[in-house]
Write a protein that binds this DNA or RNA. Structure first.
Lengths: 150, 150
DNA sequence: CTATAAAACTTTCATTTTGCAAGTAAATAC
DNA sequence: GTATTTACTTGCAAAATGAAAGTTTTATAG
């Protein structure tokens, strides 16, 4: 037996899927910074260990949150993308960020961006989702969402 | 040194505060089921170990998410309550539940309740918050929020 | 071509965390 | 006064984490 579910509680289900120290940071890297490859994720400032990254990517793929595809140009690389199920985590990221912005005096989150999202929540969530779905990201890349909205 | 913060990223900050397997289940027990004491939390169906519960309660108190108060009637008991900072986690719980309801075919979450909350998000969040702040809960107790709204 | 470098992992092993089981101390119930 | 209840603590085995080094495949530089 692989791993019995603890209960049918939705909070518990979510925690079993991505409730560890690193999974949501990988998702964050994709959504906010447009990261895509193993090496991209390894570079993040929190410093995930290479073996842990490997197991997390595998697990997220097994849960249907990520998909791995071969890179079109470079056969050494693999590209990780969010599935629909993974894109559905964007509202979770938003609420985590909202909480931290309110309670972390040292937060690095840009206040104006957060305000903009919360002022028009549903349309903005839709916009973020579409951007990420098309391979873009909120803060990084030539076509970042923030640069378009500026 | 106690524990250096990994980064100033708000997602990382949130995960360091409550991003483990058990913390949010304790918060859930308070918000949804009106649990208050050590023994209450131990009884939850997910089966947290007694030593783990003790360390989590201590950590959540240290982070300012919970406060412990002596029980008014029984000096053996301690009552755990959410602070304002803890109450601010209610939207996080909502989004975790929304995700699981969509992606867990076996979910035990009541669909009508979720619909009601999402149909009128801000007022409902306010109502939940007030209920919990006054010692009530969503699903449990004589004055549960669902029974009032029925 | 050949040699070097890059990318995505895997392996090893020490350290930390988890979790089960049993134990303790204070307060209440009988 | 004796047995329970409540909130923990302690001991220890098992599992997860994390740092470092190693492997394999593909690309690039000379």
């Amino acid at each position: 037996m692989k791993h019995q579910r603890r209960s049918n509680c939705p909070i518990s289900f979510a925690l079993e899927a991505f409730g560890d120290t690193w999974s949501l940071l990988i998702i964050r890297d994709i959504v906010y910074f447009g990261k895509k490859t193993y090496g991209d994720f390894l570079e993040s400032e929190e410093g995930i260990a290479t073996n842990i990254l490997a197991t997390r990517l595998t697990q997220l793929e097994e849960k249907g949150i990520l998909i791995k595809k071969p890179h079109a140009m470079d056969k050494r690389k693999e590209v990780y993308q969010l599935t629909e199920k993974g894109l559905d985590l964007i509202p979770v990221l938003l609420e985590l960020a909202n909480w931290s912005i309110k309670h972390d005096p040292q937060t690095g989150a840009p206040a104006d961006w957060i305000e903009m999202v919360n002022a028009n929540r549903e349309p903005m969530l839709k916009l973020i989702r579409e951007t990420v779905q098309n391979g873009g990201a909120i803060f990084a890349g030539p076509d970042s969402l923030v640069s378009k909205l500026a």
